[in-house]
Computed example of a mutant assay.
Amino acid sequence: MDLKFSAHVEDFRREVRHWFETQFPKDIIEKYKAGQPLATADVRRSEMALGAKGWLASAWPKEHGGPGWSIEEQYVFDEELERAGVPTVTPMGVVYVGPVIYTFGSEAQKQRWLPGIRDGSNGWAQGYSEPGAGSDLASLEFSAELKDGTYTLNGHKIWTSAAQHADWIFLLARTSRREKKQEGISFICCPMGAPGLTVKPIVTIDGAHVLNEVLFDNVKVPEDNRIGEEGKGWTYSQYLLGFERTSYARIGGKRAMLRYVRALATAGSPGTNERLIDDPGFAMRLAEAEIAVDGLEMTVFRILSAVAAGGTPGDAASTVKILATETHQQITELFLDAAGPHVGHRGPSSGTTPRDVATYFAGRAQSIYGGTNEIQKTIIARKVLGL
């Protein structure tokens, strides 16, 4: 099996790499690599730089303003973005809600929202989880009552990533109560500046502010802010979650971390010159992680090929979510083992930053967010394997 890319795709890779090296704002890359928190202005400037090039909505088809790249080009672009150290694109707009809008939204909604998502000028947040409805999302109690063409939103969303940077939030709200809890849920968009909407930061133990609570107290939005049919929000959310779970793969970043781990393990430890790579147990764990990334990559290719043929990631995306999570955790555990002897010394680890250690801790949470791995295994058993 020949896994090499064509000459055309490799030419494309060189073009993308050159642009990141010469045109993308260098100060943002330096700040991101140093583990410094990005302000809203940094996030917006980063994504608008990609948007101005036409590369922010990299997976969108041409008819909706995307570049219309092949699966191979999309994949190479993601690899080069990770390689360059560019901040991960906030997925809530271009990866999550954008495809929902251009698939299920009206023409007026497409004209209203897609340009700002595509060029990076409008940031989005995702209002799904609630204090009593996380992995069991269908149990949500957030309400939207319709009267005279206006929805009144009330409730509490939690673990809302990037809400402090967002201009809009898309959310799931209960618009009616029926026998089956997945029914009666609608998909609604709301401006973050709406009266009655409050954002409360959730600062994690490392001092980072990524997550938020978002509270709604009689927030008013027009009926036109509902995407698709009333009561069909659960269907649209499952379509969106397929893209979300596939986006966790980040093969380029995992390969970069593996190269860094191997460099640390191959360098002699300060004072002893012992090499961790010569430890058979560590060498085996490193080889297993590299094989796991290869397997994850092949799984992603299969799913992306199905999307390119007109399908959706579907329930098989749960496989990527589990594999990506477990592989990320494998790699970051290896990193801590390899970096330990070098801390405080010159050498391969001199470029280690607080972000590297924070990546390890953040990886623990991957087993939970986006649908816990236990839930994903149940989905695979029932809907993929038919058990």
Rank of each mutant, 00 (worst) to 15 (best):
S6Q: 06
A7Y: 00
D11H: 13
Q36A: 12
Q36F: 06
T40P: 07
A52H: 10
L56E: 13
A59G: 03
E63V: 11
H64V: 15
H64M: 09
G65S: 03
P67Q: 08
A84I: 03
A84W: 00
P91C: 04
G93V: 01
V94S: 12
V95E: 01
G98C: 00
I101W: 07
G105C: 03
Q111C: 03
D119K: 04
E141R: 14
S143W: 00
T152D: 00
K157C: 06
T160P: 08
A162M: 05
A162W: 12
A163S: 09
W168Q: 05
I169L: 11
I169N: 04
R174P: 14
S176R: 15
S176L: 09
R177W: 15
A208W: 05
L211K: 09
N212I: 04
F216N: 04
R226L: 04
I227E: 01
Y236D: 06
S247M: 03
Y260K: 15
R262Y: 09
T266Q: 14
G268E: 10
P270A: 13
N273P: 11
E274H: 12
E290A: 14
V300G: 09
A306I: 06
D315W: 00
T332D: 08
P341L: 11
V343W: 02
R346V: 04
T359V: 00
R382M: 01
